[in-house]
Amino acid sequence: MLRHVIGALNILIREDLGYGGVTDWNFSEDEKRQCFCNRQFDVRDCSVQGIFTTADVVEHDPLSLMCPKMIPEWNTDLRIEQMVRYPIPHEERQRLEKAIDSNPSQRKAFILGHGLWSNLEVDQTLKWLDFVLDTIDPRRNLPVLLITPNAAGDQKPDEWIVSQGNKALVHFEHAMAIQAAKRRIDHLGTWNMSIQATLYDGVHMDMRGNLLKAMMVMNWLNLLEA
């Protein structure tokens, strides 16, 4: 689900509702028709072509980035690493460690998006969370935001209603808010903001919902400047 939030953030920094969240520079004409606007998120063949790092945009379509045009010294690298299981495989841990810039002068913030991979089991999630936190910031000095899953929609498959339905999601969100505070990191719950939203498959939000999540993340980042 963080993949979609990253897509929405890329829409904002590229100021492109049509293709801002995907690697449109290598799209065929058919893909451009298929993946336009909201379909960046709603069509699986489109959503899997999301942007994983700002460096890819700089390499392939640098003129689409709006921030450098307004702030010449802007050099933020927005990137995503996916680790959706625990224990975390060795190669995924190595990739995460490599992705963390060791330059102490460069400002960093980490956004940890948690989906449904743990079946909302708090103990399993905490093992994952502690492992990631120990990897990125053992001393807990860097800003970290944990985002927990949005609400379930009416298209949610029946077999997941008990373990991943709205009651389970609310309990999970409340539990993780407490655990985040104990670990001195921030928490963003998204159940309340999404309970009346459009979830095309009962799980994932469309572009509008993800843009709202992205704005909430931007507000959090802005607070770090205060």
Rank of each mutant, 00 (worst) to 15 (best):
L2A: 13
L2F: 10
R3T: 13
V5N: 13
V5A: 15
I6P: 00
A8I: 05
L9E: 12
I13S: 09
I13D: 14
D16L: 02
L17Q: 11
G18F: 01
Y19N: 04
G20C: 09
G21W: 03
V22A: 10
V22K: 04
V22G: 04
D24S: 14
W25A: 03
D30V: 03
K32N: 02
K32I: 01
Q34P: 01
Q34V: 00
C35L: 02
C37K: 12
F41S: 06
F41I: 11
F41E: 09
D45V: 03
S47M: 02
G50P: 01
I51Q: 06
T53D: 15
T54R: 08
T54P: 04
A55F: 05
D56G: 02
D56H: 07
D56I: 00
V57H: 06
V57P: 04
V57T: 12
S64M: 05
S64A: 15
S64E: 06
M66Y: 09
C67T: 12
C67D: 11
P68D: 08
P68C: 06
P68V: 05
K69I: 02
M70V: 12
T76K: 00
D77V: 09
I80T: 13
Y86A: 00
P87Y: 04
I88H: 05
R95G: 04
E97V: 06
A99F: 02
I100P: 07
D101C: 14
Q106I: 14
K108E: 09
A109H: 05
A109V: 13
F110S: 05
F110N: 03
L112Q: 06
G113F: 06
S118D: 14
L120M: 10
T125C: 09
T125A: 14
L126A: 02
L126G: 01
K127G: 01
K127N: 10
W128F: 09
L129W: 03
D130C: 03
V132A: 08
L133Y: 07
I136W: 05
D137Q: 06
P138C: 08
P138H: 09
P138R: 09
R139Y: 10
R140P: 03
N141D: 13
N141C: 05
V144N: 08
I147R: 05
A151H: 08
D158Q: 10
D158C: 00
I161F: 03
G165H: 06
N166Q: 08
K167T: 15
L169F: 01
V170D: 08
F172D: 08
H174A: 13
A181T: 13
A181Y: 03
K182I: 00
K182V: 01
R184C: 03
G189W: 04
G189S: 11
T190A: 10
N192D: 14
S194H: 10
A197T: 02
Y200S: 09
G202H: 02
V203T: 15
M207E: 13
N210C: 11
N210M: 14
M215E: 14
M215N: 13
M216W: 05
V217W: 04
M218A: 13
L221I: 09
L224W: 07
L224Y: 08
E225N: 11
A226R: 14
